[in-house]
Simulated assay, not measured.
Amino acid sequence: MTDQPTQRAAPLTPAPAVPVFSRAAVVASCAGFMLMGVLQAMYGPAIPALREEFGLSPSAAGLGLSAHFVGGVAGVLLFDRLYGRVGNRRIIGSSYLLMAVGAAGFALASDWPVALAAALLAGLGFGGIDYGLNQLFAVGFGHRSTAMLNVLHAHFGVGAILGPALIGAVGSGHYPAVFLGFALANLPLLLCLRGMRNDAPAPAGGDTCGDRVLRRSLGSVIAVFVALYVLHVGIEAGVGGWEPTHLETVGYSAGAAATATSVYWLMMTVGRFLVAPLALRFSAQAIITVSCAGMTVCLLAASVPALAPYAYAGVGLFIAPIFPTGLPWLNRAAPRARRAGALVIAASMAGGVAAGPALGKAIEWSGVRAVPLLLCGVSALCLAATVWLIRGLRSP
């Protein structure tokens, strides 16, 4: 990366005078994101058992993850309305409970509509945690917020490694036991909420030149941020959900495919931990540009069967920083756009909603072998959106 350091791209913002998190609350927040990763990553490896148990087509089975993301969108929008009116502890605590109850309902569901309703409920809690902790981390650590957000999201990756690994270890037919265990694991986090600041801290100020640019085109800039989040999370969910099926189709065993999917989530974790110190030196736009370009190349390489497991691992490495790095960039670019953060986080959920049925239909038309090429096209659009944002936010 050759871009200027972040300190030159935008002025440093001091951390809030009253800390938003105690050290214990930071650890608990990271654990909460780890559980979110476990939940999201378990739906894909459970697809074979779901199809057999409920007699589902590929696109219908993909609706489980989509229902989860529909609930996530609703959770983001609901808790955005409550943010600043209801204490942070109540928002995060109720979200943990919703995610636990939904996961338990999915495990115990007797038919597919009930399972979808439970996934929707789990997604509602998922969205509340996603929105609440992202907002608080984005403004709660001053100039270290980008680095801390990457650390937070790295723990999501830790959970996403564990999810497929657990399903692979016990067999997809025993997925209910894993979902029930996940539900119970949420409950101890409720004890750690006292270390979280209960009122909403004020957002950090932005760059004055950036404000002048945004006053001319605020709506279009936010729309492109939304598009970037929709597209890249669609890729993230698409690879996580369909990599096992694609690898099995091109000749890998079920165990090898599940392991490769865990490696994909592992590389997301590694990527975020690696970017955390880099975020103190390089601008967000440099990091995201390199990420989108690398992701596009890796998805193209994944269409070659011999390279596919390694290429998917590369996708995980490059996609890792986009979500956590984009939020502070948006906050600096549009500090007065109160709902911008909620819009892009909700958009990230929408990408997950669309990925399941859209990829399922595309697979029915073009075959499973086309999955990496379809996602490569979407990744190229992410790169184009990033280039547009860099030009649109360039200071006069």
Rank of each mutant, 00 (worst) to 15 (best):
A138Y: 03
A154M: 07
L162F: 14
N134T: 07
L162V: 15
L149P: 03
L149Q: 11
H155T: 13
A165L: 14
M148C: 15
G159V: 05
G142P: 05
G163E: 06
G157I: 10
R144E: 01
A160F: 10
H153W: 03
M148S: 11
T146A: 15
Q135G: 08
G140M: 11
G142I: 09
L162C: 09
G140Y: 06
A165K: 04
T146I: 08
H155F: 12
A160I: 03
L149S: 08
H153C: 06
F156V: 02
H155Q: 04
G157P: 02
G159F: 03
P164F: 01
F141A: 07
A147H: 02
A154P: 00
G159K: 00
G157V: 09
G163R: 01
M148Y: 10
A165R: 10
G142E: 13
H153M: 08
G140E: 01
L152Y: 03
M148H: 10
P164V: 13
L149H: 09
A160N: 05
H143M: 05
A160T: 02
G163S: 01
H143L: 02
L152V: 13
L136R: 09
R144G: 01
L152C: 11
P164D: 09
G142Q: 12
A154R: 06
G159I: 07
A147F: 01
H143S: 14
T146L: 13
V151R: 11
M148K: 11
A154L: 05
S145G: 12
L152K: 08
I161Y: 14
V139D: 04
N150M: 13
F141L: 10
Q135S: 14
A147S: 15
L136C: 04
L152T: 07
L136A: 10
M148E: 02
A160Y: 04
H155I: 04
N150H: 12
G140C: 07
G163P: 02
H153R: 13
G163T: 06
L149F: 13
F137L: 07
I161P: 03
M148F: 06
G157S: 03
G157Y: 06
Q135I: 05
A147N: 00
L136M: 10
I161L: 15
Q135M: 15
V158Y: 12
L162G: 01
L152W: 06
G140K: 12
G140T: 03
A138C: 15
A165Y: 14
I161M: 15
M148W: 05
R144A: 04
P164N: 03
V158W: 08
M148Q: 07
L136D: 07
L162T: 14
L136T: 00
V151N: 08
G140N: 11
G159S: 09
H153N: 14
F141R: 11
T146V: 12
T146C: 13
V139G: 00
L152R: 12
A154Q: 03
F141Y: 11
S145F: 03
F137K: 04
N134K: 11
V151T: 14
L149R: 06
V139H: 09
F137T: 03
H143E: 07
A138W: 00
L149K: 09
V139S: 07
N134I: 00
V139L: 02
V139N: 08
M148V: 05
H153T: 10
L162S: 02
A147G: 13
G142S: 13
G163D: 01
N150I: 12
